[in-house]
Design a protein around this nucleic acid. Structure first.
Lengths: 282, 282
DNA sequence: AGGCCTGATACCCCACCGGTATCACCGGTA
DNA sequence: TACCGGTGATACCGGTGGGGTATCAGGCCT
């Protein structure tokens, strides 16, 4: 199955074999054997190249899930065996430090607390980390991250702010609307790749990592609308202006549905208690 | 991994080997090898028997998920290859016939409709069927069924009714409350097994299948609170009385998160359109 | 002390996986 | 049209490993 996925991704037996660090003939045979065992043709080998059949497409997505599940089993088991099973929490680099720090501190103060490793990842990568067992729980942001397939607990809901250069006219406003920021010619909003790795059309710069975006913001080349608590990116030469009608962003803890270990349950409970306390402060 | 799960479930190498239709020694070796590869002790072989270590417990749940995912890949791929990929819909035997029939009929009337196989299953079995690929979509009932890990679309929300023998005093009431039905000495509510196969305490009869329950209802030995549309179980000698403060039950379509095939998307859209039409009727 | 039941070990054999060498086929090109 | 580059398939071979049987080691009963 791993072999099939490699071939399906490369659409080329030679390159796939190279990636798998093996020779091409056994790879061909292995895929043929998989097809024979399933009784299904997964790849159509036309002259000049390979393409997926519809069954092959199903197999590709299902096989990825299955392989991730196997990886997850291995990783989580290893983790459960070693050093009193620390939890691994995945979070985007841009997420609020203060929020996370407070949460981790309150959790660490609990009697039965286990160690929590923080795993920084790129945007949109959390799902994958949870699925293949590299992480146990992630900080995510609704409505940006799709929560499908995950259980979650809300931590904080807040408005969003626009980050603009201090010298820009918009910086003098005390508040903005989406209409104000969506079509600023000299500060186009950056474009992220879609799931198929193509970019949506538009004037903004193409970015695929947080650091790229940070760079562009620092240069004053793009405008950013982010949750109010995500202040990590605020340079002195930039100003944060509330965007009144931006959809509120909810920060939440998310974990694979059904995999609520005792340690995780405690963390979630801490978060919920913290949230209550936070509300009381407001 | 399959071997480990068998041993972990039986907690006995001999019986596990028998179940796997193989001899005991290779099974022992295979499990040892898995432990060596993971670098983790999964089973503690004490004198007289086998028990799971904590790492073994994680492995058991993760391995089950992984094996199900592999099964799902095989099943869904096979299905995708054969007969223009029919959808398989899983539903409890007790769910409303009329609702399902209307839904299937409206879907079948659509131009691009594929065939839909209906798979009847026991209560609580739908998750498993979706997970291991025997079904693509299921009819479930919130709040009874936990939707974690699944995407879903609501079809219908309705109140619940109590099914009581026509001769019983409660049958003469035009409506009831939960307090009325929760503590009727001669009609105790049946008890279902929990996930660990033990039964909650209480006076009611223990049941583990729909047919058992149907039998008890027919005998007038238990009282039942079910969604108003689930009339399949209504015998002439029984009466359905609305229970005003019973939590409303929502019937919904559920499918594994993220696996929304085109055919499934059409079915969901049909359901949602049907729901709108239904509202208009009210 | 001896039988039993358990899981582990010893040893054997064949299937299968991976490697190398080579073929069959197609497309482009001179 | 003949050649060549490139692709995936086939032929064959060797070693690992998974499965089998026979047997051992240790704990618990009688």
């Amino acid at each position: 199955m791993r072999y099939f996925v490699a071939v399906a991704e490369e659409l080329h037996f030679g390159r796939a074999a190279e990636r798998l660090k093996m020779a091409q003939p056994p790879l061909s045979r292995a895929v043929q054997q998989l097809e024979r065992r399933l009784g299904v043709v997964l790849l159509s080998r036309d002259r000049r190249g390979v393409s997926l059949t519809t069954a092959g497409e199903t197999m590709l997505v299902e096989a990825r899930l299955a392989l991730d599940a196997v990886d997850a089993a291995v990783r989580r088991t290893r983790r459960a065996a070693s050093a009193q099973s620390a939890l691994v929490l995945a979070t985007k680099a841009g997420a609020s430090h203060e929020l996370l720090k407070e949460l981790l501190d309150s959790y660490a103060a609990r009697p039965g607390a286990v160690e929590i490793d923080v795993l920084l990842c790129e945007i949109g990568e959390q799902r994958r980390l949870l699925r293949d067992g590299r992480a146990d729980v992630a900080i995510m942001h609704a409505p940006f991250d799709v929560m499908a397939g995950l259980d979650s607990a809300e931590i904080l809901t807040e408005g969003q702010v626009a980050i603009v250069p201090a010298s820009h006219p918009l910086a003098r406003r005390s508040s903005l609307t989406m209409a104000d920021v969506s079509d600023v010619p000299d500060l186009p909003i950056a474009r992220w790749p879609r799931h198929d790795d193509t970019y949506p059309p538009g004037p903004g710069p193409e970015v695929h990592s947080q650091s790229q975006l940070a760079q562009l913001v620092a240069l004053g080349r793009t405008l950013l609308v982010i949750p109010a608590s995500s202040r990590a990116w605020q340079w002195p030469e930039h100003v944060a202006v509330p965007v009144l009608d931006a959809p509120p962003v909810t920060t939440l803890l998310a974990w694979p549905a059904g995999l609520r270990s005792p340690a995780l349950a405690e963390l979630v409970e801490t978060a919920e208690r913290w949230k209550e306390g936070d509300k009381a402060q407001l």
